[in-house]
Computed example of a mutant assay.
Amino acid sequence: MTDLDDAYANAPNIPGGTQYPGRWTVAAEAFRARQAGRAELGLPYGKSARQALDLFHPEGTARGLCVFVHGGYWLRFDCSFWSHLAAGPLARGWAVAMPSYDLCPEVHIADITRQIAQAVTMAADRVAGPVALAGHSAGGHLVARMAVPGVLPSDVAARLSHVAPISPVSDLRPLLRTSMNEQFRLDKAAAEAESPVLMRPLPVPVSVRVGGDELPAFLDQARWLSEAWGAPLEIARGKHHFDVIEALGDPASAMVVRLTG
């Protein structure tokens, strides 16, 4: 164990933390079952099996596209765990895309950034209108990277209406001092090249959200991005790293209202 392993270990520091993936799976499966006829599952956007996304359509013509990128330290999970979080934007008339992606150590984090750019581009080709991005934890890092010039094609970047990193890993340099880096295979240059806090964003509305009960390291990561980008920071009182995303499933939540205008 390295000196920062515990600082970035969420599950052991959340009561019942190991039970959350099972809960997510049950809720996501039930949600997909209710979307019969309005869901396109497993749409490929790249060459590998994990380069695929689920696309949920609202009733009637979509007002825009919301993309949610999952977390898991670029090491675990896929889009099937999070389907229920599409409920909020869907109820407000937005289509929702949820991509999976290849995981470390089979690929590098920079490769995953490129894959998410492909996923956003493919989904944007299928749904007209504005494009809003939300991502959690490692997914928060990935959607922040989409808000940097040159990552998305210019025509897709021009459609971005809001980017919402939730509990993001915005500075990858501390991860160099975690045992996870055996799988990330980052050196200092690679960590800097993938750290949104060191980049200038596109002129797109950005809001950062983090749980008030999160680990200090994640409170810091969210604050660093907020300060670096001049973006508002919402600290959700009483929320930890695993339940801070639940607001996405509520069409009346401030986060969903912000995302979908």
Rank of each mutant, 00 (worst) to 15 (best):
T121Q: 12
V127Y: 09
G129A: 11
G129P: 00
V131G: 07
A132L: 04
H136W: 00
H136C: 00
S137W: 01
G139F: 01
G140V: 06
L142W: 00
A144V: 07
A144M: 09
R145V: 05
A147V: 01
A147W: 00
V148L: 14
P149A: 13
G150N: 15
G150V: 14
G150P: 13
V151Q: 10
P153W: 12
P153F: 11
S154M: 06
S154L: 06
V156C: 09
A157L: 10
A158Q: 05
A158C: 03
L160E: 04
L160R: 02
L160F: 11
P165V: 03
I166C: 04
I166W: 00
I166Y: 01
S167K: 05
S167A: 15
P168K: 08
P168L: 09
S170M: 06
D171V: 03
L172N: 14
L172T: 13
L172A: 15
R173P: 08
L176A: 14
L176H: 13
S179L: 02
S179K: 03
M180E: 08
N181A: 06
E182K: 08
E182G: 06
F184P: 00
F184H: 02
R185P: 04
L186H: 10
D187G: 10
K188Y: 04
A191C: 11
A191G: 11
E192P: 08
E194C: 15
S195P: 10
S195E: 09
S195D: 06
P196R: 05
P196A: 10
P196F: 07
V197Y: 06
V197M: 09
V197I: 14
L198S: 09
R200P: 01
L202F: 10
L202S: 07
V206F: 06
S207Y: 01
S207E: 10
V208R: 00
R209V: 14
R209W: 15
V210A: 10
V210M: 09
G212M: 09
D213G: 05
D213W: 05
D213Q: 12
D213L: 11
E214L: 11
L215K: 04
A217S: 15
A217R: 13
F218G: 02
F218E: 08
Q221S: 15
Q221V: 13
W224N: 08
W224D: 12
L225M: 07
G230E: 05
A231I: 03
A231T: 08
A231F: 04
P232H: 09
L233W: 02
E234D: 14
E234H: 11
A236V: 14
R237L: 05
H241E: 08
F242T: 04
F242V: 12
D243V: 03
V244M: 01
V244W: 00
I245N: 00
I245S: 00
E246N: 11
L248N: 00
D250C: 08
P251E: 14
P251D: 12
A252C: 06
